[in-house]
Amino acid sequence: MEENKRIKDCKVVIIGGSAGSLQALLQILPFVEKTISFAIVIVVHRKNTDEQTLEDLIALKAKLKVKEVEDKVKLEAGFIYIAPSNYHLLFEKNETLSLDTSEKINYSRPSIDVSFESAAEIYTNHLIGILLSGSNSDGTVGLKAIQAAGGISVVQNPLSADMPYMPNNAILHTTPDFVLKTEEILEFIKEINQE
């Protein structure tokens, strides 16, 4: 890892994914300690019908608590926030989350690009964006925005992704700071804000 590219003062880790990303999330989130000094925000594409199951599954497996995302919920370190289906998830200056039902972007609502761009604007160089498995091009533009604002971009190694299209697309069109296998992403997260 390039040491100079490690953020000391990270406030938010935002993770985007689509098809095949749940598997990766379940290999990562259960091993993240409760004491982390940043918030984790998850934006994944899913069917409207399995609304609760993703929350329930992650809540069951993770040591961290999952906070239900209602409009204007406060973002706090040590919690996981999951974008509800059928809304775009946006970040406000007063560190709350807000929701928006506007048109789908990249055939998706929530769209990873929309949330990444919005987070980049508010959290600038205190932000890490991680893009996981998927078979859609959502997330690439968002990763670019995160880097442009001074944050760090991480892409799941396509070889370890269930659906390599999404990480591949990001690697093709951006220069990610890190390309990591699933286990390495977990190690990377454990290192965040550590001396």
């Binding site: 946006l90 970040f91 406000e92 928006d100 506007s102 929309v114 508010i122």
Partner: peptide
Amino acid sequence: YSRASLKRR
């Protein structure tokens, strides 16, 4: 109005 959405719109 919430700024994040308004600014995008």
